[in-house]
Simulated scan of single mutants.
Amino acid sequence: MSNVPFLPPSSPFVLPSDPFEQLMAAYGVQLQYMKGHECPCVLGNLEVPGSPDPACTTCNGRGTYWDTPSEPFFGLLTHIGRTNYGNEPGSVMDPTQGNVWEASPTITIPPSQVGPWTQATVYDAFIEPNAPQRFNTTLVVGGNPYLPYRQGLSIASTGAVRVYDATTHSVVSGVGYTVSSGGVFLADTYPNGTAYTVEYYADPVYVVFRTAGGAPHFRPLGAVGNPLPLRLHCQLLDIWTRSRSGSNTSTSPFAFGSG
């Protein structure tokens, strides 16, 4: 007698669209979509062909820039603790960038959420609004003064900035500063190269950018013939911008500064 494996029928064991929509409504989060564009400065940089122009005022020297955020919609954002999906949010020591805050969520958009985000692809970005987190970003005088996370930005009027004094090899707190369009500017004059850290709250931003499975694909859920939910593997903006950081002073609120 031959051993024939049992294959269950596709229905009702698959998740039809109605229960899936109910699942998303119960466990989904609010998101905003930002369409990404590859900047032509990458090919226009004659000094280093194929690399972004650090002086580009549109992309902040990263080769990619984004449109303004869309209206909010609901989707599923999950951090799956498997090596092929990426770890949950946490701090990690990167061999090139040093200590970084990393997260690699999977964003799932149900078919009912119709909008430009259904065409999302690599380099597009998603904001998780109304989910502020506390970030610390180190900037450098003479470099890019703009924070990487600017949506829902909240910075204390005093005490949020600390400067490193290279002469005394110590950290100076209580320095004066101003905030404008997501940029943090020191009130006193410091020499170029002086590092200062900004503590602030902002909504996290995720870029569709992954080595494995980074391109958009559709989840095989739902009855035959029905629209399928879109799944996107993303990466938290911090490490992404550090690896593509520029040195200009663009005021574009959606190009994102160095992390």
Results as ranks from 00 to 15, higher is better:
184 V>C: 09
76 L>P: 09
38 E>F: 04
259 G>D: 05
92 V>T: 10
28 G>L: 01
70 S>Y: 05
188 D>C: 02
7 L>T: 05
153 L>V: 04
185 F>R: 13
18 D>Q: 02
14 V>H: 12
80 I>M: 13
129 P>E: 03
215 A>C: 00
41 C>R: 07
114 V>Q: 13
44 G>E: 10
246 G>Y: 01
90 G>I: 04
24 M>W: 05
54 P>W: 07
243 S>M: 11
221 L>G: 09
2 S>H: 14
214 G>D: 00
199 E>I: 07
256 F>E: 08
203 D>S: 09
68 T>L: 14
87 N>Q: 12
62 R>V: 09
141 V>A: 02
106 T>L: 15
138 T>S: 13
209 F>T: 01
195 A>W: 05
29 V>R: 15
33 Y>H: 14
32 Q>W: 07
88 E>K: 03
15 L>P: 14
84 N>P: 00
50 G>D: 12
84 N>L: 11
148 P>G: 01
81 G>P: 15
103 A>H: 12
216 P>Q: 10
78 T>L: 10
65 Y>C: 02
14 V>L: 11
91 S>H: 11
203 D>M: 03
199 E>Q: 14
107 I>V: 10
206 Y>W: 11
142 G>D: 12
52 P>I: 09
188 D>P: 04
177 Y>S: 11
35 K>R: 13
64 T>K: 10
237 L>K: 13
176 G>I: 08
164 Y>N: 06
227 P>S: 14
161 V>D: 13
141 V>F: 03
126 F>G: 08
226 N>L: 05
83 T>A: 08
47 E>H: 10
223 A>G: 00
143 G>Y: 07
247 S>H: 08
180 S>I: 04
62 R>M: 08
181 S>A: 03
221 L>K: 08
13 F>R: 15
119 Q>V: 01
134 R>V: 07
16 P>G: 15
163 V>W: 05
180 S>D: 11
63 G>N: 03
245 S>C: 06
29 V>I: 12
96 T>K: 06
36 G>T: 08
196 Y>V: 01
114 V>D: 09
53 D>M: 04
6 F>T: 10
39 C>R: 02
138 T>C: 11
130 N>H: 00
35 K>I: 03
245 S>H: 03
104 S>I: 03
174 G>V: 01
96 T>M: 10
131 A>I: 00
119 Q>E: 06
25 A>F: 01
189 T>Q: 06
21 E>M: 03
174 G>H: 05
228 L>G: 11
192 N>V: 03
193 G>I: 01
256 F>L: 02
79 H>E: 15
174 G>T: 03
86 G>Q: 15
92 V>R: 15
207 V>T: 03
35 K>F: 11
60 N>G: 09
245 S>W: 00
218 F>G: 06
259 G>E: 04
62 R>G: 09
89 P>L: 09
209 F>Y: 11
46 L>V: 07
181 S>G: 00
151 Q>C: 14
173 S>C: 04
17 S>E: 14
118 T>R: 07
191 P>I: 13
198 V>P: 14
144 N>T: 00
